[in-house]
Computed example of a mutant assay.
Amino acid sequence: MYKKFLTLLAAGAMGALMPSAAMADYPEKDIRVIVPWGAGGGTDGIVRKLTLIAEKNIGASMYVENIEGGISATGVSQVMNARPDGYTIGALTYDSVVTVPWQGLLPSYKMDKLKLIARVTSEPDAIIVGSDTPYETIDDLIAAAKEAPGTVKIGIQNIGSRLHLAILQLQDETGAEFKIIAYPGGAAPQKEAILNDEVDVVATSLGDFAPLLESGDVRGILEFSETTNPTFNTVPTAKEAGLDLRMGSFIVFAAPAGTPDEAVEALEHAYKEALESDEFQTWVASVGVTPDWLGTDEVTQWAEETSKALFNQMDMLVEEGVIKR
């Protein structure tokens, strides 16, 4: 019996060590990186660029897959339900962390099903107008929206999203009234809408529209930030315009909850090296996005505090009848 007990004890110890031993050679196969938005948007571009560099650091192929739908919930749900082995991760944005949980769009969508790896960027939202519109400044736009309420068409990405909240707050602060039109699926549909003159204005980030800003097809007239954008430094900030509104998104990488620490650490290290590389820093300086690193030990608390503050803000707007849950 004693020998049997020792045998069982040894087997148990070996079983406990097997996950770590198995992860010693991580990664041994391709890593899937889910972007829960359509191809061609700002999030997609940033994730693809970072991942292309990160795969050189981690020593395995990393392929990006776009899975649209549900204001990012469809793609993020696939991450939540994936095998927690380090071979499926995803990119979260504001809507993934705030809008979807607050609206309760999917009962099975719970943030505790994820292990956050790192935040890699912060990106203020902005007001962008077509180059053929008469709006040279935010004051021009606000004046037009006051003079003819509900006629100036502004494209957002989703009803109830961060950008919707930003425009509602802009209306509240300035007394303007826009005709708000939703284009689900990220920045790509917004680009088509403004180029086809379906809308006069869009609310999104300058980084999302970097190619069109550089080509002169559109121009930025305001960024909801405190500091001047290092790339598009001619775009005034909300602070400079005397507005209180501040709003923006971010990109956070996450894995399914239960993913081994060894895999999370390897992914964190690979993306941190990618973010700090000369290649990425040179590239990102041209697209209007701010690298803003928070590692595994810090990003979860930051996400919880951010979502809690915004949940409270949106609950107040519901009580005031400004938005509906």
Rank of each mutant, 00 (worst) to 15 (best):
L141K: 07
L168C: 06
L50G: 09
Y87L: 14
P19Q: 05
P291C: 12
T204E: 15
E304N: 03
T51Q: 10
L206G: 00
A238M: 10
F224H: 01
G59D: 07
Q313W: 11
E319K: 12
V322Q: 14
Y183K: 15
F232R: 03
G248M: 05
A39H: 09
F253A: 07
K308A: 05
M111I: 03
T228K: 01
I251H: 00
G207E: 12
Q301A: 07
Y26W: 01
S277K: 00
S77E: 01
Q157G: 15
M316V: 14
Q157N: 15
A60D: 14
I167A: 13
I46H: 04
A16S: 11
N229M: 14
V129N: 15
T231N: 02
T231P: 00
E279P: 12
G40Q: 02
L168I: 10
T306E: 07
D292N: 10
E262Y: 09
A54N: 09
G216I: 05
K308S: 01
E240F: 00
A60N: 14
K115T: 10
P260G: 10
E320F: 10
L92F: 15
D197F: 03
L170E: 14
A143F: 01
D125E: 09
V79F: 06
S307K: 08
Q169W: 07
D132C: 07
V47I: 14
L212Y: 02
E319N: 09
L213F: 02
E240D: 11
E226A: 04
T121P: 00
Q190R: 13
K179N: 15
V129P: 00
V202Q: 11
G42I: 13
S161D: 15
P189W: 04
A210M: 04
Y94W: 09
K115M: 11
V264S: 06
A193Y: 11
T204M: 15
